[in-house]
Design a protein around this nucleic acid. Structure first.
Lengths: 225, 225
DNA sequence: CGTGCCCTTTACACAGATTTTACACGCCGC
DNA sequence: GCGGCGTGTAAAATCTGTGTAAAGGGCACG
């Protein structure tokens, strides 16, 4: 579940937001002061932070700057909340690298909608994916199964890993070297048809969908895209 | 320079925005109707699109949906402009995948600021440059694909490398020797029409955009500029 | 200890890409 | 306009990378 932190000194707003987020299916935690945030950040990094611009101890803009400086939080999505509708604050917040901003008063629906938009942009990096789909090919890393056009096919270990790595990089061409390093896990000296071999059996087992694995001559292989 | 398209039926607003963007250092082009946009998109894809929600011929939301459906424009940053301040429109716009929205009336400063914010976010997604664009020619080094006016063309290894190297040096004339060294990777003794040969097939595959590869007599070739 | 499966390697043919060859055409200086 | 040089284009010749089959080796499992 996606975790969201809210830093907001006004109790009623904070509680309302936390409640709203929870009903929307997020895991939400509110903080009154910034130092609580710093403590929580390292312990359990969230997917997104809602940041009030006006705070008693540390200014929201200052917090944002600190977040953007640290490597760990450099890409953490941040939405600024501001009571002041002045343009100056808006611009300043945006230029510091906030992903969006919302002016109080805001409606719950709008807040949720914006959060979803920002998270979608962020690529849902925090969410772990277990199922990958391309064109009727469904690969599940938990169950270790592959369905082609609804029919399960049985793959050997290396075949599965190979297909997984290809699907993880949909549309991107992977060289044989890259594949050997990532799937086989070691450096390979000299020429070898090993990768080709496994590609071949993959294609065979995938039947007519086998042509989704594309040979890029002189470079490597890719799937889809 | 970053190119921005504006689709807005109100002349005075459109002109003002175009003017403002140009003074801010962008390359800006305004369109009154959506079909003009579709024509321009394939010819020369922009870095960002400003989209009015209320248009005479095609609704802004419909345009956004179409943009999001096509592969070529799936990740193109879009900012929605809306005269109606109703929350419904805002949410709908956001959930369709607009990157931001601005309610009229807006100030020029705010507009610029928001555009920069969206562009910065879009740029972060691809830290390293993987895509090169010139005049409707889009080359992606990861996927090893080339789109000409939105249509994918398939190139051989050498053709791709050659085009890549030309685009990397947009506007700069490269001698045949230089190209042989960089693309073929060794010194070539004696005269050979090899480079010409590949230039020829490149031009052919690029169709009408083939003339973007310019012959500089007695020197070599260049693209664009 | 035997069996079966998986992985790797070897060998080779062939499609497709690259290079060479050959020649026509257009540009440029005169 | 004329001739020479450089480039465009086509086709032939050559080369290279990949698909594929088959065989050998290793490992897990019974």
């Amino acid at each position: 579940m996606q975790k969201i932190y809210i830093i907001e000194d006004d109790d009623s707003i904070r509680d309302m937001v936390v409640y709203a987020l929870k009903s929307a299916g997020f895991e939400a935690k509110g903080f009154e002061e910034s130092h609580q945030l710093w403590a929580a950040l390292s312990a359990a990094p969230p997917s997104l932070v809602l940041l009030d611009i006006m705070l008693p101890d540390e200014d929201g803009i200052a917090i944002l700057q600190r977040l953007r400086q640290a490597d760990a939080t450099k890409n953490l999505p941040v939405i600024m909340l501001t009571a002041k509708g002045t343009e100056y604050d808006r611009i300043k917040g945006l230029d510091l690298g906030a992903d969006d901003y919302i002016t109080k008063p805001f409606s719950v629906m709008e807040l949720i909608s914006r959060i979803r938009a920002v998270l979608r942009r962020a690529g849902d990096a925090s969410e772990k994916q277990r199922e990958y789909q391309i064109d009727g090919i469904v690969l599940n890393t938990d169950k270790r199964t592959v369905l082609v056009q609804g029919r399960e096919i049985s793959l050997t270990y290396k075949e599965f890993e190979l297909l997984f790595y290809l699907m993880l990089n949909e549309g991107v061409v992977l060289t044989r070297d890259k594949l050997l390093n990532e799937v086989w896990g070691f450096d390979y000296n000299g020429e070898s048809r090993t990768v080709d071999m496994h590609i071949k059996s993959l294609r065979q087992k995938m039947g007519e969908r086998g042509n989704r694995i594309i040979t890029v001559r002189n470079v490597g292989y890719k799937i889809g895209g």
